[in-house]
Design a protein around this nucleic acid. Structure first.
Length: 485
RNA sequence: GUCCCCAUCGUCUAGCGGCCUAGGACAUCGCCCUUUCACGGCGAUGGCGCGGGUUCAAAUCCCGCUGGGGACGCCA
């Protein structure tokens, strides 16, 4: 059996989109489980929008996810170059071939003429196709236009036949003939157009399965015409449904969380992202009854199948990503947890290289129960890093102002004063003494103490908190609370 | 407008004619655990878009409608 070869072909015109990431993932999974090859190709024929920076960002995003490719601009391979901007002579060669065979022709129409024509067609409720105007230009007319300073684009003669697409996800899709007009394959400036490049590259790179987003389904029609005209064998197609935003329109920048890089920056875990993306449009065969949805990459690879990929579009659900990422964070070993949390703590100016490693690890482990991503950690750090903690709600003030609380807190302060360190057990022993001395217990005992020490009704285990913050800081906090009463 | 695609809880989905009084996950709500919150455990609420067929039997097959999406570029 021939080697399975798939490709991911982003255009470097911005960030890596969440949808693009899923497409890359599915290609990668498919290649992996079939012992195939994943090709990374950069589609940078849009000179105006493509940037080198964007290309780098995209490669890094892919690497962050853990998706590696076998052939690509940075890796080389037998079918390079892998950047379309470096394959221009190839496209020109094939364009000339089509021209020579009469399957394409020069088109001298200007943008304005084309736009005017489209407008008119639309006004007449017709499909806004190209008219084929330049198709029958005589040599004399062409010469005249050239002398007038017009440089022609190359237009492909669309074939007049129904086109059938065999698609692994969608089954058979047929487009009736006459759906599209003659389309440009080479710009007047001499650069090729997307549909032309993809076809040539996919064919020359021996891509066996084209797995991509559904927005390309109608492009496939053009590409099939080109495959046929060029005499290339057809690959197998698989069009993945789109990822939608909450308003059910295509997920885009304006929806806020469309770029993969954002999730990396916020400190989401790549394994959670993989898990989430895989579940978006695909479900493991074992899914039913009491089945785990937390899947490792290995498990996903083992079970993945294009036939099981859903046809209907899926809404990107941040809640579920949050759940998965939080779940994975809670399963991280302490050292790793610290390593990932540290940059956010440093950025907030809370820690530096001198901060005690063991202490910080405990703090981070105490906080991680709340996290969906590591950047959220700074929302919870005050209790460990600030000594002036002012309650915000009236309920908290009331509990502090309850009768006897001043004496209670003074008592606690007295017991903590002079100590250099205290364990949770020792702290609770002190609390026990207070309980006897002041005759308070339960909520009436713990809440004022908690609020004085943490500024809030809620927070980490008091023993943990006190042992980590230390007696001296606790004394400061109690003093600060007492002053405000 | 034309063409194509899609349609099960709010969201992601299981379901491929009888195991479905439709299963799971997230979210929501409640209970438990806990001195509090979070975590964790348990439970609840909630869905087959509509109308026709086909069949002994339809979420599952067919048709129509409705709704949503995508594409119609010298963008990819």
């Amino acid at each position: 059996m021939a080697t399975i070869r798939v490709r991911f072909a982003p255009s470097p015109t911005g960030h890596l989109h969440v949808g693009g990431a899923r497409t890359a993932l599915f290609n990668w999974l498919f290649a992996r489980q079939n012992n195939g090859v994943l090709v990374l190709r950069i589609e940078d024929t849009d000179l105006a929008r493509s940037t080198k920076e964007s290309e780098e960002v995209m490669l890094n995003d892919l690497k962050w996810l853990g998706l590696h490719w076998d052939e690509g601009p940075d890796k080389g391979g037998d079918f390079g170059p892998y950047r379309q901007s470096e394959r221009l002579s190839i496209y020109r060669e094939y364009a000339d071939k089509l021209l020579a065979e009469g399957k394409a022709y020069h088109c001298f129409c200007t943008d304005e003429e084309l736009e005017a024509h489209r407008e008119q067609r639309r006004a007449e409720h017709q499909t806004p196709h190209y008219s084929g105007k330049c198709r029958q230009l005589s040599d004399a007319e062409k010469e005249k236009l050239k002398r007038a300073g017009r440089t022609p684009a190359i237009r492909f003669k669309a074939s007049a036949e129904d086109i059938n697409i065999k698609d692994l996800v969608r089954g058979n899709v047929t487009f009736p003939q006459g759906m599209i007009g003659d389309f440009i394959i080479m710009r007047s400036q001499g650069y090729p157009i997307y549909n032309f490049c993809v076809t040539i590259d996919d064919a020359l790179m021996k891509i066996s399965h084209v797995i991509r987003g559904e927005e390309h389904l109608s492009n496939t029609l053009r590409q099939i015409m080109l495959y046929k005209a060029l005499g290339f064998p057809l690959p197998t197609f698989a069009h993945l449904s789109l990822i939608l935003a909450g308003d059910r329109s295509k997920l885009s920048k304006r929806h806020g969380h469309s770029s993969l890089g954002q999730f990396e920056d916020k400190g989401y875990l790549p394994e959670a992202m993989i898990n989430y993306l895989a579940l978006l449009g695909w479900a493991p065969t074992t899914l039913s009854g009491d089945v785990e949805e937390m899947l490792s990459v290995e498990e996903i690879t083992r079970q993945f199948s294009l036939e099981k990929v859903n046809k209907s579009p899926a809404v990107f659900d941040l809640d579920k990503l949050n759940f998965l990422s939080g779940h994975y964070i809670r399963r991280l070993p302490p050292e790793k947890t610290l390593e990932l949390a540290r940059p956010y703590l440093e950025q907030a100016g809370l820690v530096d290289e001198n901060t005690d490693q063991a202490w910080l690890t405990e703090v981070v482990m105490e906080l991680r129960g709340h996290l969906h991503c590591f950047s959220e950690i700074t929302q919870h750090t005050d209790v460990f890093f600030k000594n002036e903690l002012k309650p915000e709600s009236d309920a908290e003030w009331e509990m502090l102002k309850a009768p006897g609380v001043t004496d209670l807190l003074s008592g606690l302060k007295g017991k903590l004063s002079g100590l250099t360190a205290i364990s949770p057990e020792e702290f609770f022993a002190l609390i026990k003494e207070l309980k006897k001395e002041f005759g308070v217990k339960g909520k009436a005992l713990f809440m004022p103490v908690r609020i004085a020490l943490s500024g809030q009704q809620h927070g980490p285990d008091l023993g943990k908190l006190v042992s980590l913050v230390g007696p001296a800081n606790c004394v400061k906090r109690i003093e600060s609370a007492l002053q405000n009463l």
